[in-house]
Design a protein around this nucleic acid. Structure first.
Lengths: 238, 238
DNA sequence: AAGTGGTCTAGACCACTTC
DNA sequence: AAGTGGTCTAGACCACTTC
């Protein structure tokens, strides 16, 4: 009984929806019925249902009830923070990460501005090529505040840096801001990517913040045009 | 006193943060203090604070308090549903919408699949060029289920169709799914856009759902590479 | 030990939908 | 009139942080 009550109710309902035990378009039991089923209070049931709603599992309609949405249509994760490793594994394709550069240096002007640092600070610079189907299609340029990320190795960078930071280093990532735009490739891009004839690439800037509100990571993910795909799921209001 | 209590508290705090009366990094009054200030219950204060947190205004830390984030850094709206009109006005540039095509027709195979319709149904087809700084940089191809959107005119399409649908037609839009990818321009794109030498464009597919869970709109927004920008703000966990 | 936010309860009144 | 979800209250206990 360690887990929160509303979370375990949420988990149970998610499982039933994903297993197809509760079918799309059908109505969930009413909040009062769920109160009896789970022997809890209405506010606790409502917390579970609001989570389901926020995550796109149900649609609540005042006066009517909660309806199950067709989850099978959303083939991509809702969350905005997804690692290359997760995506590659989901797609079931052969993938590899190549660590091109790994070093500690003082941030240049641009990086000072992105990470809110001074020229006397230190940052980790990690340049990695992401290979899928034997083509290098993504170039990830990660910069970490050295004060926050003390230690990094080639082995860590070949796996998922996120997994290391969250589970081993114990960092608590709270939010991230992404900016997507299209740019012309640099010499570096041509060196580390199999760019083919494409003369543009999609750049995803990523600013990552910790729980204490400090910005500790700036990343540029540079994607070959033909392999780029981004999915966003936006709810309006409640 | 028509508005919800938690919403008016939320609005008041947002105003104070945006006006700089509550400075970034400073701590908000504790929940118990706010309970006294606003003469309400703690759960109501918590609803207001959770909204602030979800919308990126504050960061709550267990045992410590709620901290104000630096809002000035997020120059773009958090929400995923933004109309061209809103963006253009925000940027303060001269803009115009040109309605190229407006008609009712049976959906073709592709559209039947996108909108889950049959060949016997009817859809509105709206093709609009979006002009900013005297260049046509976005081509919006909107398709609406005729059963839902009964009436459309050239005048409506020249403004914001969203505004019309939500405020005049009374439709309640609940969520939308976006897919961003890069494609080669078609003959249609070349006809309706000032494409310059670019031989790719960014395509944003948009699936829009009503409150009753029905999919009623499919849109392709086709952006000239150099003018495309998308910002996403993702919170992790609570 | 005192203060913080996170969870939970049992009750109330309300607006909206259905019949 | 009965059922639905939305808001609100006044209280309780808890885990975590600070001193």
């Amino acid at each position: 009984m360690r887990e929160n009550k509303f979370l375990s109710i949420y988990d149970e309902l998610v499982n039933q929806i994903q297993a197809g035990k509760i079918k799309p378009i059908t109505k969930l039991p009413s909040e009062n019925e769920l109160v009896e089923q789970y022997e809890t209070s209405r506010e606790t049931i409502r917390k579970a249902l609001n989570l389901l709603s926020q995550n796109g599992y149900i649609q609540k309609v005042r006066g009517k009830g909660s309806f199950v949405l067709d989850v099978s249509r959303y083939d991509f994760p809702v969350s905005g923070l997804v690692s290359f490793k997760e995506i590659a594994q989901k797609m079931g394709k052969p993938w590899k990460t190549i660590v091109n550069e790994l070093e500690v240096l003082h941030p240049d002007d641009y990086l000072q501005k992105q990470l809110h640092l001074s020229s006397k600070d230190y940052v980790w610079k990690v340049i990695r090529s992401r290979e899928m189907d034997h083509e290098r299609i993504i170039l990830d340029k990660d910069f970490f505040n050295k004060k926050v990320v003390i230690n990094l190795t080639k082995e860590i960078c070949e796996g998922s840096i996120y997994e290391y930071l969250e589970h081993v280093a114990g960092l608590k990532i709270s939010f991230a801001k992404k900016e997507i735009s299209v740019v012309e490739p640099t010499e570096e891009d041509r060196r580390y990517l199999d760019l083919k004839e494409y003369n543009h690439l999609v750049m995803v800037k990523n600013y990552v913040y910790l729980e204490d509100m400090s910005l500790f990571q700036y990343t540029e993910s540079r994607h070959r045009l033909d392999k780029f795909r981004f999915v966003d799921f936006a709810r309006r209001g409640n």
